[in-house]
């Protein structure tokens, strides 16, 4: 059964897209997104996006990595398999700093990459905007706004008028399974 999943509108250039994003944000829409062939400076503010929590995810992961790195070496070298190596104490933390640092960085990098995937809801194989035929141009030279139907204010009729009123062209409703 086909149902409306969202609305699309095309804008002429990055500056207009930013203006449109501000107007949509001010109109109170929450579930919308902007699409462009390249990153646009100032878009985060225009869309009213909050700061990404990614830094805290990375921070937590680095601490976990460092703890695991140091803890594992302590357990191996001082608890489970104590061996005297070049006359140094069992728990030679100096020697363990390198692996601790390496795991600190590795876990941080994992946190950054997979945290980014998670926050971007990736991997995702399909999205309602792909039902539009014209939308493919966004990878070339088109600037699009999409508003999804799960937004509280979404209304099939009003949304098209609204998108036209803020200067959008090629306004269309996206429908699909």
């Amino acid at each position: 059964m086909s149902q409306t999943l969202g609305a699309l509108a095309r804008f002429a250039n990055p500056a207009e897209l930013i203006e449109a994003a501000k107007k949509i944000r001010d109109a109170g829409y929450k579930s919308f997104d902007c699409h462009s062939p390249f990153p646009i400076h100032g878009m985060d503010d225009a869309m009213g996006l909050k700061r990404s929590p990614l830094g805290y995810i990375v921070g937590g992961m680095t601490l976990a990595g460092a703890t695991i790195g140091m803890g594992l070496q302590y357990w191996v070298a001082a608890v489970e398999y104590p061996l005297v190596i070049s006359g140094k104490p069992f728990f030679s933390w100096q020697a363990f700093v390198i692996v601790t640092f390496a795991l600190f960085v590795l876990f941080g990098a994992f946190g950054a990459v997979f945290g980014m995937f998670h926050l971007n809801r990736l991997p995702r194989l399909h999205h309602p905007v792909f039902y539009s035929d014209k939308f493919a141009k966004v990878t070339d030279d088109a600037f699009y706004v999409s508003i999804e139907s799960d937004d509280e204010q979404f209304d099939d009729q009003k949304i098209q008028e609204f998108l036209s009123s803020i200067g959008g062209t090629d306004v269309e409703l996206v429908a699909g399974e």
Binding site: G87, K88, Q94, V97
Partner: peptide
């Protein structure tokens, strides 16, 4: 600073 210390500590 750590790299400098580390090699000297290791070499002893």
């Amino acid at each position: 600073g750590g790299a400098q210390y580390f090699l000297i500590w290791y070499g002893n």
